[in-house]
Simulated assay, not measured.
Amino acid sequence: MTVSIIGTGQSAYTRHPRAGTTTSGVISRAVRNALTEAGLTPADVDGFAVSSFTLGPDHAIDLAWRMGLKLTWLMQDTNGGASAGGMLQHAVRAIEAGDAKVIVLATGDLMEGQAFAELVANYNSATRDHLSPLPMNGPNALFAMLTTKQMETLGLTREDYGHIAIAQREWAGLNPDAVYRNALTMDEYLGAPVVATPLGRFDCVPPVTGADAVVLTADPGDGTPRANVLSVRASYNADQQAGDGLATGLRSIAGPAWNESGIGPEDVGLACVYDDYPSMVVAQLADLGVLPAEEDPSIFIKRRIATRELPVNTSGGQLSAGQAGASGGMHGLVEAARQLRGTAGLRQVHAQHAVVSGYGMVLYRYGACATMAVLERGE
């Protein structure tokens, strides 16, 4: 059985949500938009999964009730940037097992100032007890250290990271839903205020309010534009936070995922990787094998990413479109599905296969969760 994404939806990202905006409201809007695109109604849905940092005190069942969903399968994922891949993995298995026929996966958050500050300060007990008391602001300092280590290890420069941010901003210029669409120059990138050396303003994701959703079902076989899920894998606590952070959990699951999908990283025409920082784009592309081990990363960035020869984060990624809390990982899945279904508008590329990665849940030093999905354009 082939499981496919047949609809995508988004609740518009914004840095400044209107008064009265709620988390349940933005998620519900994304779900409605996804169902409309799929030609379905809430009555057709029998499976639902959600991930959100700010949905509380409500839970998945409360939101499902508010949206009028009657279900035989339900889950709630708490793993942030890796939640989309985790929910996708469970949803594919559920459809294959016959537990549900039509499943909607949704993510979203209200990230106005106070909500974001509380999330950063109380992300988990490690953050609350050991990081928040230090004179540092959220994960930026942690990833500044990781970026410095990556620069030293791989011989990268700030200009190399700048090429990634600039290329994604060029893609964002073609995406009417991206929060930041104005062209970005290398001088602007290098001259931006320092956040935590070597990270500048354009190296760090802007928090936004918004939501994303996808609709999954078994391949309808009726010519409906779709993105087929060839493989989805996940890795949690790959090194128990004992490594240097330069290798993500993707390294151990990439081989099995490529084998299951029947293609290799060289066949990928689109990569949507979790981009909270440019250094993590490099790390994930390397662990996925899209950045070949034998190739100089700096040359690869200039030759493939800067020129947009290899489409990477064609929505603009989180660095330009924004990070809507737990929707960070779903953002890439929605974009990949839109590209493979031919609904990406001016930024449309002609890829047959896409890889999507999720990364998240910073513990003491870096993300503990990683997911990857290999998708194929439906015939």
Rank of each mutant, 00 (worst) to 15 (best):
T2L: 05
V3K: 00
P17N: 11
A19M: 06
T21M: 05
V31M: 15
V31E: 01
L35T: 11
E37V: 15
G39S: 08
G39I: 05
V50F: 06
S51I: 07
H59E: 06
H59K: 13
I61Q: 04
I61N: 03
A64C: 14
W65N: 15
R66W: 12
W73F: 13
W73H: 07
T78Y: 03
N79Q: 08
G80A: 10
G80I: 04
E96V: 09
E96A: 13
A106L: 10
T107D: 10
G108S: 11
D109Q: 14
L110T: 09
E118Q: 05
L119H: 02
T127A: 01
P133Y: 14
P133C: 08
M136E: 04
M136P: 04
A141W: 06
M145D: 08
T147I: 04
T148R: 12
T148Q: 13
Q150H: 14
E152S: 10
T157N: 11
R158H: 14
G162M: 06
Q168D: 11
A172P: 06
G173K: 13
L174V: 06
D177C: 07
D177G: 06
A178G: 14
D187P: 15
E188K: 12
Y189T: 04
A192S: 15
T197F: 02
T197L: 04
P198H: 03
G200D: 02
R201I: 04
P206I: 04
P207Q: 03
D219I: 03
T224S: 14
V232E: 03
A234R: 12
Q240D: 13
A242T: 10
G243Y: 12
G245T: 09
T248I: 02
P256M: 12
V268K: 06
G269K: 10
G269Y: 14
C272A: 10
A283C: 12
L291G: 02
A293T: 10
S298R: 14
K302H: 14
K302W: 10
K302D: 12
R304C: 12
I305Q: 00
L310G: 03
P311G: 00
T314N: 14
G316R: 08
G317E: 02
G325Y: 04
G329W: 00
V334H: 11
A336Q: 00
L340G: 00
Q348G: 06
Y359K: 02
Y359D: 01
G367F: 00
E376R: 15
